[in-house]
Amino acid sequence: MGENQVDFEKIYKVVRNILILTMLMFVVKWLVSVINNKIIFSISQNLRNDVLRKLQKVPLKYIDSHPHGEIVSRIISDVDQVSDGLLLGFTQIFSGIMTIILTIFFMFSMNRKMAWIVVILSPLSLLLAKYISKKTYTLFKRQSEIRGEETGFVNEMITNQKTILALGEEDKNVKKFQNINQSLEKVSVKALFFSSITNPCTRFVNNMVYIVVTLFGAFIVIAGDLTVGGLSCFLNYANQYTKPFNEISSVMTELQNAMACLSRILKIIDEEEEVQGEKNLRNVEGKVVFQKIDFGYSEKERLIKNLNFSIEPRTKSGNCWSNWLWKNDFDEFANAFL
């Protein structure tokens, strides 16, 4: 096409259509992301609520045997990670799949041979991304394990910082922290690096596909089966077709990370609850009876064996036994905590 060959009437028509589509797209895009936000933030809100509710019901043993920092990081960081992952996943995967379907349709209606090239070659980038994300998954898992360990350590030490000062343990503490922190650094560098080469690698594959299509297209145009405008239009579709693959694959790493977090959160939510009796206390007189009670914090160690006694109403009673009889445990026991 050269001088005075441009059909302006047709251009204006197209321009009008693009204008309308652009406006529509603006509204739809915004609505979709608002709705997505609403759904996902509600999901993470519920997740947080569920975990906290669960924490009120798990046996004390559970809370005692898990570092608090780790549980806190489940509720805060892990849930954040899940919502970040889902947010990216939802928005990208939805629009991604739509784009893929539509562009396939348009490409095939333009030129079948070239369309086949694009459709067959493009998933290569997805395979590559999958291969990389498989590697990064283990790295991310290891990273969040060590991060949990570090958070646990920080929590324990900072909470008791005054004792640390009193004991003069500052230097030793720094060294211990350094050990954990250094191994965290090593894993993190690897995890971040491998996850961040996903994009360049898939982009490379896509570029190659683009070049191959250009080459084929150029020959088809030279042979006269396609116009130059047709080729550039086709290249556009090809570009749009590969982009979601690119995005989906980068989202996959993020999603995988989110899934690792979600599974840890669900593990808490699925914890067994303390067994609740069904009867309610009524007409309390104050008579307490202990009958053949055995008790220990762990299966191995029985602290109380075959304890029997009863306390009559309106009497005072103190459990003034010597230390090895576990006064505190007795109180806990009387409250039916365990």
């Binding site: 001088e3 005075n4 251009i11 204006y12 652009t22 406006m23 797209m25 608002v34 936000n37």
Partner: peptide
Amino acid sequence: SLSNPLNYMVVNFGIIAILIVGGRQVN
């Protein structure tokens, strides 16, 4: 989340302008 759709819209306006102005230049 207004940001992304707004960007797309403005860029599309830009592409429309390229079509019109560029079309003339080609002409």
